[in-house]
């Protein structure tokens, strides 16, 4: 509290001092003559712009390299590499424009500061020049559009037939990950069934659909390396966004409208740990669309592993269907016959 008050007092003092300086300089200007003081102001500000240009350019380049270590590492997916290249070409197109226009802007500002001896040059237009700086950006942009749309279609195009199908269902505030099991097909579901079967049916799977019987839920997103995976994305409440920063994957989860994204992971978690020299590194799944108070807290760990490891992990997972049957069996030992009947009815009617 004390520091806050002291801070505020300091700020107020600074403001008062600046105010007094400014009023004094206004008075001085009336004494010395408006022209003279404007002359000083012109020199001072022109110089400031020049300094801003120099420190700005040096600073922006320096800080970019300084922070480059913290940027995401080389993408761990096939399309991530395409995007990296696209980013590079966009840099090639834009950085020179950034530098050249800024040099021109601030250098001209400095050079053509007011002087009694200079007359400004009446130069209302030059059609040829304007044509040049219309056509060149147009061509560059068309090239970028071409490259962009080509990649966009490849990325959003149909997933390879061999893709493994995984489902991510968002809800406030977690991701439910469902694997399609041996048949590589996700069973159907409806929000009406959510919470049934004593709360074990978290996704609202419909058990009459046999495709559901081999589906299992997982706490971590495990993926085999170098195999295409097709993520079916949806939400049961508000918008969310399925976001895997290291794989350059992002797609909104929309209630009522299923979306999807397919990609090929190219580096295992283990490889990344070695590459980054960080034994605790983990790929992460996050939410990228504001979904409420705990939006910043929807984390899942993502594990990319060798095919064999993946199969071993998969073999250990238990299907939801089996879990529910087990629970029902355990219950039937203690529950009354009537209740038992109820439950079986419920399950089969779904």
């Amino acid at each position: 509290m004390l520091t806050t008050i002291l801070g505020l007092i300091t700020i107020i003092l600074i403001l008062i001092i600046l105010f007094q300086i400014s009023k004094a300089s206004e008075m001085l200007a009336t004494l010395k003559g408006e022209d003279k003081s404007m002359n000083m102001a012109n020199k001072g500000n022109a110089l400031m712009f020049m300094l801003f240009l120099i420190f700005g350019l040096v600073g922006s380049v320096w800080s970019t390299f300084h922070y480059a270590d913290l940027f995401l590492p080389v993408p761990s997916s096939v399309h991530g590499i395409w995007l990296r290249n696209m980013f590079f070409w966009t840099l090639v197109a834009t950085v020179p424009v950034f530098i050249v226009t800024h040099i021109a802007l601030f250098y001209f500002t400095y050079k053509y500061q007011h002087s009694k001896d200079r007359k400004s040059y009446y130069y209302p237009h030059n059609n040829k020049l304007e044509l040049i700086w219309t056509v060149i950006p147009s061509i560059v942009l068309i090239l970028l559009v071409y490259e962009g749309i080509r990649n966009w279609y490849k990325i959003t195009g149909e997933a390879p037939k061999s893709s493994m199908i995984v489902e991510a269902t968002a809800q406030q505030f977690m991701w439910n990950l469902r694997y399609s099991g041996a048949d590589n097909q996700l069973g159907s579901k409806t929000v009406k069934n959510i919470g049934k079967d004593n709360g074990l049916n978290v996704l609202g799977q419909i058990w009459t659909d046999a495709k559901n019987h081999d589906d299992f839920l997982a706490d971590e997103l495990h993926l085999p390396i170098n195999k295409p995976v097709l993520v079916k994305i949806n939400s049961i409440d508000v918008l969310h966004s399925f976001y895997l920063p290291h794989f350059r994957v992002k797609m909104d989860a929309v209630p009522g409208i299923p979306t999807q994204f397919w990609f090929i992971p190219t580096k295992t978690t283990e490889q990344m740990r070695q590459e980054l020299d960080d034994p605790t590194f983990n790929y992460e799944l996050a939410c990228a669309e504001l979904c409420g108070q705990a939006h910043f807290n929807m984390r899942r760990v993502v594990v990319v592993e060798e095919e064999a490891e993946f199969e071993a992990w998969k073999a250990k997972q238990k299907t939801t269907y089996a879990k529910i049957k087990e629970a029902a069996a355990a219950e039937s030992g203690t529950a009354s016959a009537a209740e038992k009947e109820d439950e079986t009815k419920e399950m089969s009617s779904l």
Binding site: N42, T101, F108, Q113, W133
Partner: peptide, 21 residues
């Protein structure tokens, strides 16, 4: 493109001007 044209034209406007700050 029109955004770029505007920027170039502003820069051309101050070129060889007599600028009061």
């Amino acid at each position: 493109v029109p955004s770029a044209i505007k920027v170039f034209n502003w820069i051309a406007t101050i070129w060889r001007g007599n600028i009061s700050f």
